[in-house]
Amino acid sequence: MLRICHLYPDLLNLYGDRGNILVLLQRCRWRGIPVSLREVRYGEPVDLAEVDLLFLGGGSDQAQRIAAEDLSSRAADLRDAVEKGLVVLAICGGYQLLGHYYRLPGGGELPGLGLIDFCTEAGPERLIGDIAVEVILGGRKQILCGFENHSGRTYLGQVKPLGRVLRGFGNNGRDGTEGVRYRNVFGTYLHGPLLPKNPALADHLINLALQRRGLRVVLPPLRDFWEKEARRVILRRLHLPEQ
């Protein structure tokens, strides 16, 4: 049984982020992989040692503040689980919470978990639009497509980005990086939601979660007709070659 946890579905769920959970569940079910979902809300207990894949979505500054208060009580457990290979997908606000801090508009800081070496500062205007990012998944180059809408400018420390921006803004609109990759943690600004348009990433996350359980499974390919069509639309819009 592959165990997925959606942390704060009531707080961090912007721009259809819950669609990422639906994709993970369905791609497992289509292949006959037993899978379960647990939704954990503010203040509810969860044993992260019993979780295979953790999802954190995006949210408003106020929602992030509430989530950050609760996350701080889980910081030690989450850090331990990450170091032991927990697979994590964190989108936008959820991504920002994994760093050292988010400097808010008008001053003040929202403390992060300090789980990964980066920080975020609010910018004067929002970075909005379609985005394409070149990444390496399982040793192969892939292009991730999505939609970004964030005022935060994220600056990485001694840690690798998730990928290189081909079109769009990415972490800060300046250095050409997008997201972060640390062990089995994937942080990104790609909303939309992300996984319906990027089945290669969805399958990569499922593979990592299975491998963490000691299972070496070759995932049978799926047809992915509509997923490919959605990607083609975005790539055409961004004047990039279709994959």
Rank of each mutant, 00 (worst) to 15 (best):
A67L: 01
E109P: 03
L53A: 03
L14I: 15
G58I: 01
A81C: 00
I128C: 14
L97N: 02
V88L: 05
G108Y: 03
I128L: 15
L115D: 01
S60M: 08
S60Q: 15
S60K: 09
E69L: 11
A132R: 00
P124K: 13
N20S: 09
L48K: 04
L12A: 13
V87W: 02
P9N: 14
L137Y: 05
R27Q: 05
D117L: 06
Y102G: 06
D70I: 08
A68C: 01
E69P: 00
G108C: 03
F55A: 10
A76W: 00
R31V: 04
D52L: 12
A132C: 08
P9H: 13
L98F: 15
I66R: 15
D77F: 13
G123I: 07
F55Q: 10
R38T: 11
P9V: 12
L127S: 15
G16T: 01
R18W: 05
N20K: 11
G58M: 08
G123H: 10
A63Y: 07
L97D: 08
I136H: 15
E39H: 03
L48H: 03
G129E: 14
L56M: 09
D70C: 05
V82E: 01
I91L: 07
L48M: 07
Q64M: 15
G129F: 11
Y8D: 08
A76G: 05
V135K: 10
R140G: 02
Y102R: 13
P9I: 13
P34H: 08
A63K: 11
I136Y: 14
R65Y: 06
P45Y: 10
E134H: 02
G139P: 03
E121L: 01
G94R: 05
Y95L: 00
L78I: 12
G114E: 06
F55V: 15
V23Q: 14
A75F: 02
G58D: 03
R65V: 14
E109R: 15
V40L: 04
L89T: 01
Q96M: 12
L24D: 04
E69W: 01
A90I: 09
R41D: 11
A63D: 15
A67T: 04
G112S: 11
Y102K: 12
A90T: 04
L14T: 09
L7Q: 11
L54Y: 07
A122L: 00
L53C: 05
E44D: 12
G59L: 01
V87K: 09
G129I: 11
